[in-house]
Simulated scan of single mutants.
Amino acid sequence: MHIADFGEVKLHYHEDGDPKGAPVVFANSLGTDMRLWDPILPLLPDGLRIIRYDKRGHGLSSQPPGPYSMGALVRDAERLLDHLQVRDCVFVGLSIGGMIAQGLAVKRMDQIRAMVLSNTAAKIGTPAIWADRIAAARKGGIEALADATMERWFSKAFRSSPDVHLWRNMMVRQPLDGYLGCCAAISGTDFYTPTSGLRLPTLGIAGSEDGSTPPDLVRETVDLIPGSRFELIRKAGHLPCVERPGDYAALLSNFLAETGHV
């Protein structure tokens, strides 16, 4: 575990694999920390430099005063990659992590050569929806949102397994102000125009039972980028890397091979 101190924010990050390998950077979803990617890491090709981090207000990263902007989250990722001297990475972003990927690709094409937009969109929800969630969490804590979130995150079959409690616990144990800060960032983001200007290899991944970013929403965003590819993982919700790690790792591994990253 490492901390990168940027003054305003201190980001917790971790590196696995070959320090001299081709870099793959992972950015996780709202209400999770970098452990989101644990199920797929052993299934990825050897020789990669794998970088994960907790976004501000989540996991072991610091919690600057909110609300946050998407620009701040993108700047955090940009500064971390500069700190680690990363260029030409494949950036894998899930949900809010996919929004960070889009913003970073627009801002720093030298840092990203290809990206995976997983269970995400150029715009997620509406300001009214996010305002309602923020109000509910302020009143009852993240616990007030947890059960409904599990229904959106996971398939019915997974919700009946004991493992769902791991992810529910992870969500409710995130810092409330950090969670709310990132809700505000999503609420204020509409990347349809900048994302439509991107020209880099892009893989879109959706889960057939995703209640947060349904497949058609993911496909709509991925289709903004010429030459992109869309893949659907069946029997999975918003976090297919958890529910179907083998399928997810296979899609990612194939994409890394196709783009010459392995």
Score class of each variant (00 low, 15 high):
S62R: 13
A185H: 05
R234G: 07
R87L: 12
A131Q: 14
L224E: 05
I205E: 03
V218I: 05
A4R: 04
E8P: 13
M115V: 10
A157W: 06
C183N: 00
G204Y: 05
A148C: 11
P39N: 13
Y68R: 06
I112F: 03
L104R: 02
L104A: 04
K139R: 15
E151H: 14
D147G: 14
K20N: 15
I50R: 15
A121T: 10
P65T: 10
A77N: 01
T193D: 13
R152I: 06
L224P: 00
P245Q: 10
G66C: 08
S228D: 03
I205K: 03
A257N: 09
R219M: 08
D216Y: 12
R87F: 12
A144D: 11
I50D: 04
H238G: 02
R56I: 13
D38A: 14
R49I: 01
Q102K: 11
I134F: 01
F255W: 07
P214K: 08
A148I: 14
S208I: 03
D76L: 05
E78Y: 05
D54E: 10
A128R: 12
I205G: 03
R79G: 03
S212T: 08
M170L: 15
D5I: 04
F6G: 05
M170Q: 12
L256R: 05
G57V: 02
D177N: 11
V74H: 03
A236W: 10
T221Q: 05
Y68A: 05
W130F: 10
P64F: 14
A4C: 09
T202Q: 08
K123Q: 15
P19V: 02
T213S: 08
G204S: 04
S61V: 13
A185D: 06
Q174I: 01
Q102V: 08
E231I: 08
A135M: 07
L94W: 00
R234M: 11
V222Q: 00
A122E: 06
C183A: 01
I40A: 08
A122P: 01
M99F: 09
P245C: 08
V9T: 15
H58P: 08
W167Q: 03
G140I: 07
H2F: 11
P175C: 11
V92T: 03
E243C: 08
N28W: 02
T195L: 02
A157N: 10
E209D: 15
I225H: 01
P65D: 14
D16P: 02
V172Y: 03
P226R: 03
P214T: 06
W37D: 06
G57L: 06
H58Y: 07
G204K: 02
A148K: 15
I134S: 07
K123T: 10
A121H: 07
V172W: 04
D82Y: 06
R244H: 11
R168F: 07
A250Y: 14
R138P: 02
